[in-house]
Amino acid sequence: MIGDIISSVLLLLGATMALTTSIGMLRFPDTLSRMHASTKPQTFGLLLVLIGAMIRLGRNVDVGMLVLACLFALITAPVIAHRIGRLVYQEQRARDGLIAREDMESGTRD
């Protein structure tokens, strides 16, 4: 009974975080802002949903897969966000004439 209530609350909170992600993606003007809106609450919302599902499943064998999904999300989300942010930043600098396209391709550090 209590586990079902906690699970439901976590699932609803996770769904709310996903909703805020979609609203942020629609409303924010530029790519960096949209990226921030899509990575922070989306990852946290996914973790809440997965934890709620783990509580609901109890001692089921599938809980191990949910733990792996949580770990995978925590490991990959920051790396992907960093790579996208770096690419967008360099593209904007190139568009504004602050960096040459050749410098972007050679892999020089900022």
Rank of each mutant, 00 (worst) to 15 (best):
M1L: 13
I2H: 13
D4R: 06
I5Y: 13
I6L: 15
S7G: 04
V9S: 11
L10C: 10
L11E: 05
L11W: 02
L12W: 11
G14L: 07
G14M: 06
A15C: 08
T16L: 15
M17T: 01
A18V: 07
L19R: 03
L19Q: 01
I23N: 00
I23S: 02
L26W: 01
F28E: 05
T31I: 13
R34E: 07
R34T: 09
M35P: 03
H36T: 09
H36W: 05
A37W: 04
A37H: 06
S38I: 09
K40I: 08
Q42V: 01
Q42S: 05
Q42D: 00
T43W: 04
G45Q: 04
L46Y: 07
L47D: 12
L48D: 01
L48A: 15
V49F: 09
V49D: 02
V49A: 14
L50Q: 02
I51Q: 07
I51K: 07
I51W: 05
I51P: 00
G52S: 06
G52N: 04
M54D: 00
I55P: 00
I55N: 01
R56I: 01
G58C: 01
V61L: 03
D62F: 09
V63W: 03
V63N: 00
G64M: 09
G64K: 07
M65R: 13
M65Y: 11
M65E: 14
V67P: 03
A69F: 11
A69Q: 12
A69H: 07
C70D: 14
F72D: 02
F72A: 15
A73R: 02
A73M: 10
A73K: 08
P78W: 08
H82N: 11
R83C: 07
G85T: 10
G85C: 06
G85H: 09
G85K: 11
R86T: 15
R86Y: 13
L87W: 11
Q90Y: 14
R93Y: 07
R93A: 15
A94G: 05
A94D: 04
R95L: 13
R95F: 09
R95C: 06
D96H: 13
D96Q: 12
G97E: 03
G97M: 07
L98T: 06
I99F: 05
I99C: 05
A100Y: 09
E102H: 08
T108E: 13
T108C: 08
R109V: 08
R109P: 01
R109H: 06
D110I: 11
D110Y: 14
D110Q: 13
